[in-house]
């Protein structure tokens, strides 16, 4: 009985939807709901049911009866008032409201998901931090140019006797020693993505920007693992036809240090006006300097590690081939710009 009722409902609703003229609708109404209609016929069979079935089936019967009449009624009324017209499927669609995510958000989400797949834990550390975490613990001597007031924003606040000044972090590397402190010991695999600040504003620099910082520390970590991680990221993020390379470079908190290049998305490595002999600079990387491990209270004899810290905006530009002529446009919040993403 239950199955019979459900089949009947499906059949009736399908016929109502397909009906194309009022006569047919009227005929369907009589067929299903009329005095000698199908439903009334079925109700007569109730007598043969066991008592315990009667309540349940009765409920279903009522539900189906009202479903059929609810499907019929509006369609019949529309016909009478002439609302139902022939459908022009070439009319424009009515879209749900659609906002836009900022390209920096899209980039951050993609980057973090790539690293999460190989076991990196995403963390968040202060964007306004002590000089100790931003510089001193990273093997940057007091005389280092990055520490002077021409390059780094300094907060007008009292200094901490041990940790020094309060600065706006010029890189996400302040997360390195903080993550060592949080975990206490290797293994460490973190990706720290945050806002950074530097005293620069021109077509390729904004005073606020974003970086993502990778840090891996464990036993037997060596340069081949750094290469492997970078190759993995480059293929995942930029696509299989882009290549990466390491060039010798210099950073205080890594030794050896590298600059990572990716083949240009325009000429694919042949060399063109927009790149440097076929290559674009992605950012810095290197093997964690033993002094940094020491600052994080990690045994630098037993453990080694690597780190990299790259600009989110820059990395995203290099992927998309978005030739944004002025990076400051990203933070202009011009709705005509934002609506394009």
């Amino acid at each position: 009985m239950r199955e019979k009722l459900l089949n009947l409902k499906n059949e009736a609703l399908a016929q109502i939807i397909q009906a194309t003229d009022p006569e047919e609708l009227e005929r369907l109404r009589a067929h299903y709901l009329g005095k000698s209609g199908v439903l009334n016929q079925i109700s007569k069979e109730f007598k043969s049911l066991f008592d315990e079935e009667k309540t349940e089936t009765g409920r279903l019967f009522n539900e189906i009866k009202s479903a059929i009449s609810q499907a019929l009624q509006p369609k019949l009324e529309n016909w009478k008032t002439g609302k139902l017209e022939n459908l022009d499927i070439t009319l424009p669609g009515i879209r749900p409201p659609q906002g836009h995510l900022h390209p920096v958000t899209s980039a951050i989400e993609e980057i973090s998901s790539i690293f999460e797949k190989i076991g990196f834990i995403r963390v968040r550390y202060p964007e306004v931090d002590w000089d100790w975490y931003a510089f001193e613990s990273l093997n940057m001597p007091a005389s280092h140019p990055a520490r002077d007031d021409w390059e780094t924003f300094i907060v007008d606040a009292p200094e901490h006797p041990k940790l020094g000044k309060i600065v706006l972090t010029p890189h996400t590397s302040n997360g390195q020693v903080r993550e060592m402190e949080r975990l206490g010991h290797p293994p460490i695999r973190m990706v720290n993505i945050a806002k950074c600040y530097r005293r620069q504003s021109d077509v390729s620099h904004t005073p606020m920007f974003h970086q993502f910082e990778g840090l891996v520390i464990d036993e037997n970590i060596n340069i081949t693992h750094l290469k492997g991680t970078i190759d993995y990221f480059v293929k995942q993020f930029f696509g299989p036809n882009r290549k990466s390379r390491l060039r010798p470079y210099h950073f205080q908190f890594t030794e050896p240090s590298f600059e990572v290049d990716v083949t240009c998305d325009i000429c694919l490595g042949k060399g063109c006006k927009l790149c440097k002999e076929g290559w674009l600079e992605l950012g810095g990387a290197g093997m964690v300097h033993p002094n940094v491990l020491k600052a994080g209270k990690i045994d630098s004899e037993k453990y080694t590690g690597f780190a990299f810290g790259w600009g989110v905006e820059r990395t995203y530009m290099m992927k998309s081939g978005l030739k944004i002529p002025d990076l400051r446009l990203l933070y202009s919040n011009d709705i005509r710009f934002l609506n394009q993403f």
Binding site: P96, P97, Q98, G99, H100, L101, H102, V104, T105, E127, V128, D149, F153, I154, V155, D156, A157, I166, L168, K195, Y197, R199, Q200, S201, P207, M208, L330, Y331, N333, I335, L338, N339
Partner: peptide, 30 residues
Amino acid sequence: KSALKHWGFTETYTYSLVREDSGLRLKNPL
């Protein structure tokens, strides 16, 4: 972010540094 985007809202990124605020002041603003 995803919910708001699908409800018709557009995301902005504005500078955390402002002209006037009761918050911390920079020693060496740009």
